[in-house]
Design a protein around this nucleic acid. Sequence first.
DNA 1: ATTAATTCATATACAATCAATAGGAATTAA
DNA 2: TTAATTCCTATTGATTGTATATGAATTAAT
Lengths: 145, 145
Amino acid sequence: MLSMKCKYALKALVVLAAEGTKLPSSAIAQKARVPAKFLEAILTDLRKADALTSERGAHGGHTLKGEPKKIMLGHVVRAMDGMLAPIPCASTFYYKKCDDCTDEKICVIRHAMLEVRNKISEVLDGLSLEDLLNMSPKKKQQLFW
Amino acid sequence: MLSMKCKYALKALVVLAAEGTKLPSSAIAQKARVPAKFLEAILTDLRKADALTSERGAHGGHTLKGEPKKIMLGHVVRAMDGMLAPIPCASTFYYKKCDDCTDEKICVIRHAMLEVRNKISEVLDGLSLEDLLNMSPKKKQQLFW
DNA sequence: ATTAATTCATATACAATCAATAGGAATTAA
DNA sequence: TTAATTCCTATTGATTGTATATGAATTAAT
């Protein structure tokens, strides 16, 4: 399950990618229809995840860091929610051994979940913000949802 | 993320499939290395999900309902954890509209998550308990994890 | 009938996580 | 100096996850 936080993060980034300019969090909140104060915290996390840069003070705001084509959904989802894999022992970025497993090389559940994690990764690590924008029927018009 | 409950459920079913006989929950707990009392509740859920039948009293126990080939991982995961999709609006079995979405037909996030949900379903609805057993190097010997 | 083995039902506990909100400090441009 | 903004820390309330406890109901064997 995606958390609301992650969904909001994606929406915020889509707005930034579509707009292509610096935006204050209040504007993003409005365009993305996301709780303003919650979004502030999310934007901070996105900055730490290197997805955007922020400028403080009057005329401050948030700008996408790099081209939308280079920011992949997988990166965002991992930064917000952690691993893509359904189970830690099947994760590549957040691997953790199971307590109830003696030999994970033969664990049939891990095997199955590795397949799932690879499929999820194929999709999310293959989709960029630009790809998301291109899915939208029209452009520059905030009709993404 | 798979819950522990779901993981335990899968392990219990693998044990039952491998064994091919009626087993009391205590025996399953031991073979699957799962907390015994927690497992009891899980087995009840699995019965309600039509994955096994239970007999009470002395010499009672749980038996897989139908062939291992017919019990798909997707069914088990849904019964334990709910939808496979990362987001309710992309679920087929547990669909729910988003509050912050006016036209989900064009929602780019939903679009992306539909792709994810379909990939997950391809894997989990395509894998049976029998398939899991066949992933194991040897058989009938409780070396599944 | 009694006993032991079992499932089944209900309640409880505790911790963690989620989804936010609050208040204010620090920064910046006008 | 002011207004607009990000940034930081704390708090809240609800929900979920991961169990454990207790005991009732059922069944087979003696």
